[in-house]
Amino acid sequence: MTLQYTVEELMAAVISREIQDGEVVAVGTISPVPAAGAILAKLHHAPGAELAVWMVREYWPFSEGVKEFFDLAQKGAVDLFFLGGAQIDQFGNTNLHVLGDYDRPKVRLPGGAGSGTLYYTVPRVILFKTDHTNRSFVEKVDFVTGAGQSPPEVRRQGHAEKCITPLCVFRYNPGTGRLELDSVHPGVELQQVVENTGFDLGEIEQVPQTRAPEAEELEILRTAVKEKLRTTYPHFVQTAFHSA
């Protein structure tokens, strides 16, 4: 029997597998898919992971607001963080500021929150985006909110590792400084990824398929994880989980 699952469940499972037991993993604002992935990892294979999931009280250990979290990250004590953007480009830059020209934007976005600093202070960064079109995955972002690379004279702990989308997984190649195709999700054609990506993916002959979520992962997502996200992400909880 083929398992039925939503694209959010698949993305959460992919994110979950990136999390290792014992890591300090933080999830920021408006990040329901990484929140689901992080909690799944904790309940599935990484019970020793320390989670800080913004706005999910059970997994937010701080008393002094986000300041305490930023201080912890600046100290180098957060291992893994998730960054999104309205646009993500081939260099792993993210944009949360504007679409179009900064002074005359087509769309004004909320701004960067922590991306401008957390991208540098956290060793492992996973990019994510819940849509995948050639307007959202672009050659060059309209505004660099989070920088995929930075000049050598500024202290930086790490870089992007993966970028998880509804169609595929990209991996970041620190040698070339570019995103490359890592795997394509089950049911998605390679051509679909190429057509919906605004930057050149190079010559691709064969690409592995993303491992589908397993029954146990889906079970945890649809019960415990869904329940824990209910008050923080009521809309997501209603739409993102497959119901039999």
Partner: peptide
């Protein structure tokens, strides 16, 4: 002082 930022476009607008 704030870590990071250098390399982003914040420095263009701020």
């Amino acid at each position: 002082p704030v870590r990071g930022i250098i390399g982003t476009d914040y420095l263009q607008i701020r």
